[in-house]
Amino acid sequence: MIRIAIANQKGGVGKTTTAINIATAMAASGWRTLLVDIDPQGNASTGLGIPARDRDYSTYDLLMREGTAQQCIQQTRIPKLDCIPATQDLSGAEVELVGEEDRIDRLKTMLSEVDSSYDVCFFDCPPSLGLLTVNALSAADSLLVPLQCEFFALEGLSQLLQTVERVQQGINPSLKIIGVTLTMFDRRNRLTDQVAEDVRECLGGLVFDTVIPRNVRLSEAPSHGLPALIYDHSCAGSRAYMSLARELLGRLPAERKAA
């Protein structure tokens, strides 16, 4: 199972929207896909149509060893896409795990039982660089970074890259950045173009060619409990995420791709 963390410590950059729609696109391409919601807000779970009342087992139970991965996994309405949902209890996990010896790689250990059941797993991380995100980076093979096309996003990116370097040095040497995707792109805004140009100049080939535009349908879809790709597959946002998924497929290790 290929494991990809979707992370950026800055909030409001499109992490959850990216996680939901890229996971849906991969499932639509025939990949057995698991989305692990590791954000206490639980927005990815809601966006996939799993109401809070139905989250009997969650990522919190997984991290606290109060439920197995199989118990925590829920099917979604999208074929080949399953989810481990999050609840607000997860916000206390960082404190409760402090004294545990395996606090950094608990997620990796607990997911090992379903490793052969899926082709790819995505982690929707919280907007912080705390223990929950570190657990995801420890468990992941690679990192996908959504980056909002605004000035302050560049400062946040440098902090994230430093964290990735520390994780590589001390926790997960095999972790790599599979790509940076530019989100909330507005061609009417000259600053958007400038930020995109600066990011490409700085990171070169790490930046995906596909950019995710500002799109009303992307914003509306979660309120219906649906990914935008299902809510309106023809909107600009949906088309962009399908294009991003194709690019992502091209960057995955050939020997580990689904048949």
Rank of each mutant, 00 (worst) to 15 (best):
I2Y: 13
I4R: 05
I4P: 10
Q9I: 13
K10W: 02
G11H: 03
T17C: 13
A19Q: 04
A19M: 01
I20V: 15
T24Q: 11
A27T: 05
G30K: 05
R32S: 11
T33I: 02
V36I: 13
D37H: 00
I38V: 15
I38C: 14
Q41F: 00
Q41A: 03
S45M: 04
D56W: 05
T59H: 08
T59S: 15
L62E: 09
R65F: 02
R65Q: 12
E66N: 03
Q71M: 11
I73S: 09
Q75L: 01
R77C: 07
I78R: 01
P79W: 03
K80A: 07
L81T: 04
D82E: 15
I84V: 15
P85V: 12
P85L: 13
P85N: 11
Q88W: 00
E96C: 09
E96T: 04
V98R: 08
G99S: 11
E100Q: 14
R103K: 15
R103Q: 14
I104Q: 07
I104Y: 02
D105I: 01
K108P: 04
K108H: 07
T109K: 13
T109R: 13
S112L: 06
S112W: 00
V114M: 08
S116M: 07
V120R: 00
C125W: 07
P126N: 03
S128G: 10
S128Q: 13
G130P: 09
L131N: 11
L132N: 05
A136V: 09
L137C: 12
L137F: 12
A139W: 00
Q148D: 03
F152G: 10
F152E: 06
A153Y: 01
E155S: 10
S158C: 01
S158Q: 13
Q159A: 09
Q159H: 13
Q162N: 14
V164S: 08
V164G: 07
E165S: 08
V167Q: 09
V167Y: 09
I171Y: 07
I171V: 15
S174N: 10
L175A: 06
K176E: 12
G179V: 07
V180Y: 02
T181M: 03
T181W: 02
T183N: 02
T183F: 05
T183G: 05
T183A: 06
F185K: 06
F185H: 09
N189Q: 11
L191I: 12
D193A: 15
D193I: 06
Q194S: 14
Q194T: 15
V195D: 03
A196V: 14
V199P: 07
R200D: 01
E201C: 07
G204T: 14
F208N: 02
F208V: 00
D209L: 02
V211F: 00
P213S: 05
R214M: 08
V216M: 14
S219Y: 01
S223Q: 08
H224M: 01
H224C: 00
G225P: 15
A228V: 15
A228G: 01
L229A: 10
I230K: 07
D232M: 02
S234D: 10
S238I: 03
A240V: 08
M242P: 02
S243L: 15
G250M: 12
R256V: 04
A258R: 05
